[in-house]
Computed example of a mutant assay.
Amino acid sequence: MTAELFGSLNNVEIDQRYVDGGWRVVHLKSINEADLVISLAGTERGTGTVIYSAEALGKPVFVVPIFGGASEHAWRDFKRFYTSEEVAVLQRPWRESGTWAGELLDAAVDFARRNPIAKVRASDAVSSVIVSLSLVVGWIAALLRVDGGLIPPLVWAYAMILFATYLGVMLRHSIASGRYDWRRRLYDFFQAILVSFAVFILAEGVNVFVTDKGILLDRESVRLVGWRLSVIGFFGGFLLDEYIKSLEKRARKALEG
């Protein structure tokens, strides 16, 4: 039966693991591996245990109270974590809107990214300060060295854009959630590399197309250009999630149309 069920889930990636320790251990490990917990109805022994175990583990829990059960009982404890828009979606009768499920999932994803339930660890806060200061110092060093030395100016210019973009990405996630572990930092650094490279190539490509000359190769103007592109990179990193969400909404509307 399990093999047949897994085989029928064509759009779901199954990561099947075998863990010793009994049902309760397996249950806790499953919750700890989750990126998001969504609860609907349920019993106090089953769903209620999952809800409060997830909270203790710092996992984002999206409680849907309208179906009753343990989820409705937990609502009074979890409502404080949600924004007014999220509360409106969670309390809206599902029969009133044909798009309720999609709106619920969108709100749940946004909530998981913000995750106000996560407990802020001192190590996360200290590492955020250290990384931020290192990026600022690196940006200033690149600004001062951009038109001198043996390293080509475009390398220093790209470093300026990269440092500024990563600062923007870090600021976005620091505002959204106090918890910021090394996995999130590594993923954000990958995002910063892509965004800064896109800014770099786009700016240089436009200048080559318009003036037949890449201004980032010019030592006289590269410092000013690097500074300006750093501003673009910073806001690009900061607003990246909003842009991706807008693309997702447009794609969904196009598919529904």
Rank of each mutant, 00 (worst) to 15 (best):
R80D: 09
D35W: 08
A251N: 03
D15I: 00
L36W: 14
A192H: 07
S246I: 04
L135H: 02
Y187D: 12
R121C: 01
N11Q: 15
G205A: 04
A112M: 07
I130G: 05
I175Q: 09
A198E: 09
H173A: 03
A157F: 03
R184P: 11
S84M: 14
D77A: 01
F81D: 07
H73N: 05
K79H: 10
I66C: 03
F111N: 00
R92S: 14
T2N: 14
L40I: 14
M160V: 00
S246A: 10
R228H: 01
I66R: 11
L135I: 12
A203R: 02
L202H: 05
G69E: 13
S97F: 01
H73I: 10
H27V: 06
L5F: 10
E256D: 11
V12R: 03
M160I: 01
A141L: 13
H73P: 00
K213Y: 13
S177C: 09
L167A: 07
P93G: 12
R95I: 07
A3S: 10
V126L: 15
I161R: 04
N207L: 15
I244D: 02
L5A: 11
Q16A: 13
A122R: 12
Q16L: 14
V169S: 09
S177T: 08
F62P: 07
M160A: 08
Y158L: 15
L202V: 15
W156M: 06
V87Q: 14
Y52G: 04
F234G: 04
R80Y: 04
G98T: 14
A108Y: 01
S71P: 01
W100G: 03
G69H: 05
P116F: 14
L104Y: 02
R24T: 15
N207W: 13
Y52H: 15
F234N: 03
D212Q: 06
L202T: 15
P93E: 10
N207R: 08
D110L: 11
W227N: 04
V195T: 05
N10L: 09
I193R: 02
V210T: 08
F78I: 07
P60F: 10
N207Q: 11
V137K: 12
S53E: 15
S39Q: 04
S123W: 10
E55N: 05
L90V: 14
L105N: 00
D124A: 05
F197V: 01
Q191M: 08
G48I: 02
L36D: 05
I215N: 03
S221M: 03
L216I: 13
G21Q: 10
F67G: 00
K253S: 03
V109D: 09
F238P: 00
R179I: 06
Y180N: 09
I232Q: 12
G7D: 05
E4Y: 13
R219I: 12
S177G: 14
A118G: 15
A142E: 01
L5K: 08
D15Q: 09
S123D: 05
S53V: 07
G237A: 12
S123E: 06
D241P: 00
A54Y: 13
F78T: 06
G102N: 05
L90M: 15
R92D: 07
R17C: 05
F67A: 12
A254N: 04
D188H: 07
E256S: 13
F78S: 11
S174C: 06
P93Q: 11
V64Y: 03
D241S: 11
G149T: 06
N10H: 07
L186W: 06
F190M: 12
S123Q: 06
I175H: 11
D110W: 00
G69P: 06
K253Q: 13
T99C: 02
D218N: 12
W156C: 05
A176V: 02
V155A: 06
